[in-house]
């Protein structure tokens, strides 16, 4: 057997900076914060809670998504400390109704407008850099905090989507790029 080493095929994950936040590539150092979120009742808003094994698979898929689509979700980090506060960005996994702007914030970031600030940056990236002409966000039934953020973003209820894996998503439509 012979062995050669190729350069790792990487996708360049851009970094976005806002007033208080840095949206950056997810890394192994962020996993514990994500697993803690997954184990908490907060994860009910995204179909959880889920255990460490599922959290790991989800976290791997978060990074894999960047390579599959060329874009994906960032870890939202505090600019000062780089502490992970949530997961926000454009995503479009198989089975999804359309590409969406997705947001998840960890407990430490609650009530500080972190998700709003990050989601605005993510939407601007989707429209400005990715060239999306429209964008949705999806919420699970009962996730009223996420619905409130969708409204704050100017999104309006669009439709209800039956996911092939047997759950229902409420689809929110964002204002078009030219309306912002």
């Amino acid at each position: 057997m012979t062995v050669a080493f190729a350069e790792p095929a990487t996708v360049a994950i851009p970094t976005l900076t806002t007033a208080r936040l840095r949206l950056r590539a997810p890394g192994p150092e962020d996993f514990e914060a994500y697993a803690a979120f997954g184990a908490s009742s907060r994860a009910a808003g995204v179909g959880g809670p889920f255990g460490r094994a599922d959290a790991f698979r989800n976290f791997c898929a978060l990074i894999g998504h960047w390579r599959m689509r060329g874009y994906g979700r960032w870890v939202v980090a505090e600019r000062e400390t780089d502490a992970p506060l949530g997961i926000v960005g454009p995503m479009y996994p198989e089975g999804w109704p359309e590409p969406e702007i997705a947001w998840t914030v960890f407990e430490a970031a609650e009530g500080r407008g972190v998700a709003f600030e990050a989601a605005q940056a993510a939407r601007a990236f989707a429209y400005g850099t990715l060239g999306w002409r429209t964008a949705i966000s999806c919420t699970l039934p009962g996730n009223t905090r996420s619905e409130a953020l969708a409204r704050r973003m100017g999104a309006v209820e669009d439709s209800v989507f039956q996911h092939p894996d047997g759950f229902e998503l409420k689809v929110w439509r964002h204002p078009a790029p030219e309306a912002l």
């Binding site: 989800n58 978060l62 990074i63 894999g64 996994p93 198989e94 092939p164």
Partner: peptide
């Protein structure tokens, strides 16, 4: 299986490389 599950599983296989 669904294609949605398969897509996520493959994304995780690819992401495992980045994590590990």
């Amino acid at each position: 299986p669904t294609r949605a599950l398969g897509w996520r599983a493959f994304a995780a296989i690819i992401g495992h490389w980045a994590i590990r």
